[in-house]
Nucleic acid binder design. Structure first.
Lengths: 136, 136
DNA sequence: TTTCCGCTTTACGTTAACGTAAACTTCCTC
DNA sequence: GAGGAAGTTTACGTTAACGTAAAGCGGAAA
């Protein structure tokens, strides 16, 4: 059962996710990615690719790279710390969950406002059409 | 029927929303707020207060101040433009709605990951407790 | 061999969203 | 009328997240 260890070059990842290579190297600099090397050249694994997805997802939610890095250590740190550490982790998890809940509420509100704006916009368009009708 | 036109000072708003006065003046600079003046001093209306809420909500969703300003003009521009303008507005509205939908998906994914992390964390805590039990 | 392509490092530049400090008015109050 | 509290303008500083340019390395193709 040979593992199909597909790997990626930096420009492959860049074009797939539509970011620059500069960004990808920057993420590594910030401790978000840890590609291996063949000589000087960076080699990205499937795991790194998954990381990229997660990074971009975090960014779309307005998280900073530092926060995303913290979430990563939450994620892959096999929880083997002291009880104090573990409780701290639980704390952070609940904190993040609260942020997401707030965002859900915010999104709902903005959606309502968009509904409203769209309705008024549609009304204005209808108004224009009926005026055109009268003119003909 | 005297309108109860409550007004606010800059520091009142600042403490209520837990931002600095510098930020509030900056938002004005960027065209997000338009307080009236008594002499030099800024006077904020209830409408301005509502604006503040919307600004912070937008920020929590990761919008830039420029985007928020655009949403504002979407919002209070009585849709009285040309048909071309109105169609453009509809376009922008749908664009923003798509962004929000994407965020909803992203939030759902991150929530799953948090669930996962919390479970592993809880398991590790249980593990610690049972070990303590054995030791006693 | 040269030349080009993709990758690398190094390093300075840029934008957004404020922070922070200085110097000044206004109004109250002691 | 001296001081303090709260407001103002002006302006330079700061951080995050890259952009951009310069200079160099290694392989392959002409």
């Amino acid at each position: 059962m040979a593992e199909k260890q597909r790997s990626y070059s930096i420009s492959e990842l860049a074009s797939e996710f539509d970011v620059t290579t500069r960004s990808i190297r920057f993420y590594e600099d910030q401790g978000l990615l840890h590609p291996t090397r063949r000589g000087q050249t960076r080699i990205y694994s499937r795991q790194d690719r998954v990381r990229m997805k997660l990074i971009l997802r975090g960014k779309r939610l307005g998280f900073s790279l530092a926060e995303i890095r913290d979430l990563f250590s939450l994620w892959d740190e096999t929880p083997s710390g002291s009880q104090k550490q573990l409780n701290l982790l639980m704390e952070i998890i609940h904190q993040k969950r609260a942020e997401l809940d707030q965002q859900l509420k915010d999104i709902a509100m903005v959606q309502l406002e968009l509904d409203n704006a769209e309705r008024r916009c549609r009304d204005a368009l209808d108004e224009l059409r009926t005026q055109k009708q009268k003119a003909s």
